[in-house]
């Protein structure tokens, strides 16, 4: 019965195929189609560096938020135009690994990376590139104007003084939002985490769809405090926005930007070339330009405007647990906070 729609699609489609036998698919001889959730402004640099090292290939980025890229890949299944997923949350890649969509591949030189940051199978189905870490962006200008104290802990954010001033990504659509929720659960246990979120919810102005939006909103003062990730805050601060990046002391959730080759890849050679390049030292140094934690040990240097000692605050993240419980957590989250009729 499960193939009803497939069979239906085939029958109807076949009938029409004779009339419309046009395959407009793009020939992918030298192009590698790469799905990514990496922040858009970084992509140009990565593409140029890779193409300089691999002149036979050209990268075509398909960039969207973590949720969208994940959904797209799951929807497209075997029909996806993507050759490789690059810079997507490990939690998402785990879901695809579970469905058998990923091709195990050990990139040349993968042994130089820290084994904790990749799939445990050999060869690994996915390989981590760098970690993005939860942080809080605070607009210092607006905080002062509104008399808001600088928060230092997650718990501080439940202080009624912040009521309506906090913006956080919706975990259902944003990878960053989910890593916050999953980290609080891993720090405090589920029950306490829900209790915390109940209280935090009282202070939330809106839940945004994307993970970087809260920090940008904080930067413009639309909502003075944005729960986001460190890189975005640091970048905005670098651009001169009145933003301070705070790393709450209880611990920081994080996820791995990782890559994985798709079983359905049309250009597997190209995908492997990008995979090989992505574990090189050169690539890892580039990762470090914006992120403090990268897959190759001993490479990372401190990143400007990042909170100090951010690495120490990263929790011991259990990706498998997160991937397994994602659906359940999101359902509960939706039930509790998803349907408030009006913003606070």
């Amino acid at each position: 019965m499960g193939t009803v729609s497939k069979t239906f699609g085939r029958v109807v489609g076949l009938a029409a195929a004779a009339a419309l036998a046009t395959t407009l698919s793009v020939s992918a001889r030298e192009t590698i189609t790469v799905y990514t959730a990496v922040e858009p402004e970084e992509l140009q640099g990565f593409a140029e560096a890779f193409q300089a090292d691999n002149p036979d290939y050209e990268i075509q980025w398909v960039r969207d938020s973590t949720g969208v890229v994940t959904a797209k890949l799951l929807a497209e299944g075997e029909n996806s135009p993507a050759d490789i997923v690059w810079g997507l949350a490990a939690t998402s890649l785990l879901m695809m690994a579970e469905r058998g969509m990923l091709e195990p591949y050990a990139p040349a030189g993968v042994e130089k990376l820290s084994p904790a940051l990749m799939d445990k199978q050999d060869p690994p189905r996915w390989v981590g590139q760098r970690a993005w870490v939860a942080s809080v962006c605070v607009n210092t200008y607006e905080a002062e104007a509104k008399g808001l104290p600088m928060p230092a802990t997650w718990e501080d954010l439940t202080n009624p003084v912040y009521k309506g001033h906090i913006i956080m990504p919706n975990p259902a659509s944003s990878g960053t939002g989910f890593l916050d929720v999953s980290s609080w659960m891993q720090i405090w246990g589920e029950e306490k985490a829900w209790d915390y979120m109940d209280r935090l919810h009282e202070n939330i102005g809106i839940y945004s769809h994307s993970g970087s939006a809260p920090c940008k909103m904080a930067g413009r003062g639309e909502y003075p405090i944005g729960i986001s990730f460190a890189y975005k805050g640091a970048q905005l601060k670098g651009e001169g926005a009145p933003v301070e990046v705070v790393a709450p002391s209880e611990g920081l959730g994080w996820d791995l930007e990782s890559f994985a080759i798709l079983k359905s890849a049309k250009n597997k050679a190209g995908a492997k070339a990008l995979a090989d390049w992505s574990v090189t030292e050169r690539a890892n140094r580039m990762y470090n330009e914006a992120y403090a934690v990268v897959a190759m040990p001993g490479i990372a240097t401190p990143v400007e405007h990042f909170p100090a000692n951010i690495e120490e605050k990263m929790i011991d993240n259990d990706f498998a647990w997160a991937a397994e419980n994602r659906a359940r957590i999101l359902e509960e989250w939706e039930k509790r906070y998803g349907s408030k009729s009006a913003p606070k």
């Binding site: 699609g9 489609g13 076949l14 029409a16 195929a17 419309l20 497209e76 299944g77 075997e78 029909n79």
Partner: peptide, 8 residues
Amino acid sequence: STPTNPLS
């Protein structure tokens, strides 16, 4: 998006 659909 069904791969078995000839119009996919």
